[in-house]
C-alpha cells in the first residue's frame, strides 16, 4: 500500500467516526426538542376534571405538585378545594356529603367544608386552594400569596 492510499483510508475512517459522532450528538438533541407526551405541568394550578365529574356532593383527590388536594362540590353547588392530608397524623381525609363535612377516618377528626378543624384530634385547619370553573373545566389553583 502506498502512502496516498493509506491516507485516503484514514480519511475515510475519520469521516466515518466523525459522522457517527455527529449523529450521537444530534440524536439526543433532536429527541430533546420533541416535547414529551406529558404536557408540562403548571405547578401553581391543575385541572381537576370536568364539571360533569362533580355532581352535587361529589369529590375527588388530585395532586397539585407534591400535595394531594381534596376537591368537592357542596350541596349548594359551590366548589371547595383543600389539602387532603389530615393535620393530625397525615392520613388522607375524605368529603362526607351527608353532613357536608371533611372527615379523617384514622382518628375520627372532622373539618367543616371550609377546612376548619371542628372536632376530634386535628390541631389545625386544612390549607385551602382556590377553585376556578372555566366553561366545563374545574381548575384548582394555589391561593395567591398576598
Amino acid at each position: 500500500m502506498g502512502q496516498p492510499s493509506r491516507r485516503t483510508f484514514l480519511d475515510w475512517l475519520f469521516r466515518g467516526g466523525l459522522s457517527a459522532w455527529v449523529i450521537s450528538v444530534t440524536y439526543p438533541i433532536v429527541r430533546y426538542i420533541i416535547p414529551p407526551d406529558v404536557p408540562e405541568i403548571d405547578m401553581s394550578s391543575i385541572e381537576a376534571g370536568l364539571l360533569s365529574d362533580f355532581p352535587i356532593g361529589g369529590s375527588k383527590i388530585i395532586r397539585l405538585g407534591r400535595t394531594p388536594v381534596l376537591v368537592f362540590r357542596k350541596i349548594n353547588g359551590d366548589f371547595r378545594a383543600m389539602e387532603a392530608t389530615c393535620t393530625h397524623l397525615d392520613c388522607t381525609v375524605q368529603f362526607k356529603k351527608e353532613d357536608e363535612r371533611v372527615w379523617c377516618a384514622c382518628h375520627n377528626g372532622y373539618y367543616d367544608s371550609d377546612g376548619k378543624n371542628i372536632s376530634g384530634p386535628p390541631p389545625r385547619p386544612l390549607g385551602r386552594f382556590d377553585v376556578i370553573v372555566q366553561q366545563d373545566k374545574v381548575i384548582v389553583k394555589k391561593p395567591d400569596l398576598a
Binding site: 491516507r7 484514514l10 480519511d11 475512517l13 475519520f14 467516526g17 466523525l18 457517527a20 459522532w21 450521537s24
Partner: peptide, 13 residues
Amino acid sequence: LIITFTVIVLGLK
C-alpha cells in the same frame, strides 16, 4: 467508543 475511535484515527491522520 465513537469518540475514542475518532480520536485515534485523528491521531494517526
